[in-house]
């Protein structure tokens, strides 16, 4: 017993180091699974309010640019509104019932240089934000809400190696998965498009209808280059994003009202098999 105590005292620094290293490795390994542990992220109260305060100062510098972006978007939406009669109405959706609700928020912390990037926004559970809502900007898709605290939320950016989003070629129904190889912040990869699909550099990629998170046809980017994967049966496509991921401020959060119903139905079907 005496010897054990002596051993512990003699090596107390090493044991302390070992213990703390284990703790941090534990946290890190845990984060490799799908959901991060809910209190170690920047949506918590301390970092949220510090980022919020700092953002109050820095947001003035990009104000004119942001206004221009919003005006451009308004112009586009006005155009859609005024031309509405001439366009085909979707007969499937019932009048008076909208499937998607929209919230608007601001980015208070952005990152794009890590393999796993998270964005913090200034909306939280008090704004009826929940996990797994889609986040888009006026230009295109941004990510999925991952953790929500009372007043803040972290968004898993599409620039995150865990990100996996259903996407398709515009005006077709060939769909694949949008992933990121962590190399460049303006290029993401679309995989699992079969080789029989005719592709052109410059084709537009939009979100697919398979996910219950994003509405269909939210713009993502254009094809920059493509080649076949090692098995020679699927394309591996580099997609140049429409969004400038380094310059984000105003975002919209999209909620699919029917998401829970869809998930329950799918789960029930799987369980019955």
């Amino acid at each position: 017993m005496q010897q054990i105590i002596n051993f512990v005292i003699r090596h107390k620094n090493f044991l302390l180091y070992l213990f703390l290293m284990m703790v941090s490795l534990g946290f890190t390994v845990q984060s490799h699974s799908y959901h991060q542990s809910s209190f170690f992220n920047s949506s918590n109260w301390i970092s949220g309010s510090i980022y919020q305060g700092f953002d109050g100062i820095t947001s003035y510098f990009g104000l004119s640019q942001e206004n221009q972006k919003l005006v451009d978007e308004n112009k586009r939406l006005r155009k859609l509104l005024f031309n509405q009669e001439t366009e085909n109405k979707d007969t499937m959706s019932l009048p008076g019932r909208s499937i998607y609700t929209i919230l608007s928020g601001k980015v208070i912390k952005n990152s794009y240089s890590d393999p796993r990037n998270y964005i913090t926004i200034d909306l939280g559970s008090t704004d009826s934000l929940k996990a797994d809502m889609g986040v888009i900007t006026p230009k295109g898709i941004l990510g999925i809400v991952e953790n929500v605290s009372r007043n803040y939320a972290t968004v898993q950016s599409i620039l995150n190696e865990k990100s996996n989003i259903n996407a398709k070629l515009k005006n077709t129904n060939h769909f694949g998965s949008l992933v990121w190889n962590t190399k460049r912040f303006n290029i993401v990869q679309l995989v699992d498009i079969p080789r029989l699909v005719p592709l052109m550099v410059g084709d537009t990629i939009v979100t697919g209808g398979m996910s219950s998170i994003f509405p269909e046809n939210v713009p993502i980017g254009t094809i920059q280059k493509f080649d076949l994967d090692t098995a020679k049966s699927f394309y591996r496509i580099d997609v140049q994003l429409f969004n400038d991921m380094t310059n984000l401020k105003n975002v919209y959060i999209v909620q699919n009202v029917d998401r829970r119903e869809i998930m329950e139905l799918q789960e029930q079907t799987i369980n019955e098999q």
Partner: peptide
């Protein structure tokens, strides 16, 4: 850990900093 908290890197900064401290 504090730096980690702000940069959403879980405990990577903590692990690296503890190592150089030791």
């Amino acid at each position: 850990l504090l730096v980690d908290l702000f940069s959403d890197t879980m405990a990577l900064h903590a692990a690296a900093t503890v190592t150089i401290a030791y």
